[in-house]
Simulated scan of single mutants.
Amino acid sequence: MINSPFPLEPTPAEAQATIAEEFSFFGDWSERYQYLIDLGRKLPAFPEEWKTEEHRLLGCQSMVWIVPEGDADKLVFHAISDSAIVSGLIYLALRVYSGRSAAEILATDPDYVSAIGLAKHLSPTRSNGLAAMLAFIRDTAQARQ
């Protein structure tokens, strides 16, 4: 099994606190969007053969593909988007959830979304896409538990 390529804080709550702290350094949303784009560029390479309808996340305006690996003890998610900002949203979600147990995933609400102001600053289509991705992660954890 491949290890999660994201910084793995000891707990999802600590990962979310670190994300909130990082975003607090930026004064306005143009800087935060730029940071999201920069984070999206850090996503690891995603194999072209995974870009299939089977792995495509529905509910997103952008093209998003997500592939889970693992079992209840450790789930690793691989994902990519054709949108720079959405790639940044993917990076944040995987930073919180990838590499965790199904129980940890299910016990963790995505508090970072409101903590950094994403809920107020994303377009409705991006908000729907983020919700679809978080639901996919949660549903996968539920199915593997």
Rank of each mutant, 00 (worst) to 15 (best):
P5M: 08
P7N: 06
L8Q: 12
E9C: 07
P10H: 02
T11F: 06
T11C: 07
P12W: 08
A13C: 00
Q16V: 02
Q16G: 01
A17H: 05
A17Y: 02
I19D: 00
A20K: 05
E21D: 06
E22R: 12
E22Q: 14
F23L: 03
S24P: 00
F26E: 05
W29Q: 02
E31Y: 01
R32Y: 05
R32D: 03
Y33E: 11
L36S: 04
G40F: 09
G40D: 10
R41E: 15
R41K: 15
K42G: 10
K42Y: 08
P44L: 12
P44W: 10
P44A: 13
A45L: 13
A45S: 15
E48M: 10
W50H: 12
K51W: 04
E54C: 12
H55W: 13
R56H: 14
C60S: 14
S62H: 13
S62D: 12
M63A: 14
M63Q: 15
I66S: 07
G70H: 12
G70R: 12
G70K: 13
D73E: 15
K74Y: 13
L75E: 07
F77G: 05
A79C: 09
I80A: 13
S81T: 10
S81L: 08
D82P: 13
A84T: 13
A84H: 15
V86C: 08
V86M: 14
S87T: 09
A93W: 02
A93I: 02
L94T: 02
L94Q: 04
Y97D: 02
S98N: 05
S98P: 03
G99T: 08
G99R: 05
R100I: 06
S101A: 10
L106K: 10
L106H: 05
L106Y: 03
A107W: 06
D109A: 15
P110R: 03
V113H: 00
V113G: 01
S114E: 09
A115P: 00
A119W: 01
A119D: 15
K120S: 09
R126W: 02
R126C: 03
G129I: 07
A131V: 04
M133Q: 00
L134M: 04
L134E: 03
A135Q: 11
F136I: 00
D139F: 07
D139K: 08
A141C: 04
Q142A: 13
Q142T: 09
A143M: 03
Q145V: 09
Q145R: 14
